[in-house]
Simulated assay, not measured.
Amino acid sequence: MSFMSSLNISGSGMTAQKFRLDIISQNIANAQVTRTEAGTPYRRQMTVLSSVNTVDTGTFQDALSSAVGTQREGVQVDAVVEDPSALVPVYDPTHPDANAQGYVMYPNVNTSQEMVDAMGASRAYEANVTAFNATKAIALKALEIGK
């Protein structure tokens, strides 16, 4: 693994975790939204992350990418999906969005769970920053050897 691919892996991890934090923030902000533009209650969004590993197929392109250090490795956001869990019914017959029985359907967002997810994403981001800085420090020490 080359120096640049180590930085690319850490960078892709930071990008993915930042995106994950953005989605978590969106969920927390919409935790009480009973009517979206579509007319339905907000549904919790979740990110789907996957690893990116280029497979060496023995072609000239793979050899060139490996030599130049442009192979893609790391993590990427595959999709943002809606949480299929049930909405939360709350009895409030005075609410404008109440149904005939007097229940209002609130989003399936649990702010405690979102905060735990945010802490996990934040820690993962910090771990990627630490790995990035360690790789950078190793490269600087290697350059000092040549002095």
Rank of each mutant, 00 (worst) to 15 (best):
M1Q: 11
S2Y: 12
F3E: 07
F3I: 10
F3R: 06
M4A: 13
S5P: 00
S6I: 09
N8P: 02
N8L: 13
S10A: 15
S10G: 11
M14E: 06
M14A: 07
A16M: 10
Q17F: 03
K18F: 14
F19Y: 15
F19V: 11
R20A: 09
R20T: 14
I23M: 15
I23R: 07
S25P: 10
Q26M: 10
N30K: 04
A31D: 07
Q32S: 15
V33H: 03
R35Y: 07
R35K: 14
R35S: 12
A38W: 00
T40A: 12
Y42D: 00
Q45F: 01
S51P: 00
S51N: 14
V52I: 11
N53K: 13
V55R: 14
D56C: 02
D56A: 11
D56K: 09
T57V: 07
G58I: 05
Q61S: 15
Q61Y: 13
Q61F: 11
D62H: 12
L64R: 05
L64D: 09
S66Y: 09
T70V: 11
T70S: 15
Q71N: 15
Q71W: 10
E73W: 00
G74I: 06
G74R: 01
Q76K: 14
Q76L: 09
V77S: 06
D78F: 00
D78V: 13
D78E: 14
A79E: 10
A79P: 05
V81Q: 10
V81S: 08
P84Y: 04
S85P: 09
A86R: 08
L87D: 08
L87C: 05
V88Q: 09
V90G: 01
Y91C: 05
D92C: 04
T94M: 09
H95I: 03
D97T: 05
A98N: 02
A98K: 02
N99G: 01
N99H: 04
G102P: 06
Y103L: 01
V104A: 02
V104P: 02
V104Y: 01
V104D: 04
M105Y: 09
Y106L: 04
Y106E: 00
P107S: 06
N108K: 03
V109N: 04
N110D: 13
T111E: 08
E114G: 05
E114Q: 12
M115L: 14
V116R: 06
A118Y: 02
M119W: 03
R123D: 03
A124V: 11
Y125T: 08
Y125V: 07
E126F: 05
E126D: 15
N128K: 05
N128E: 07
N128T: 00
A131Q: 13
F132A: 11
F132C: 06
T135A: 15
A139K: 14
L140Y: 13
L143C: 09
L143V: 12
E144W: 10
I145S: 12
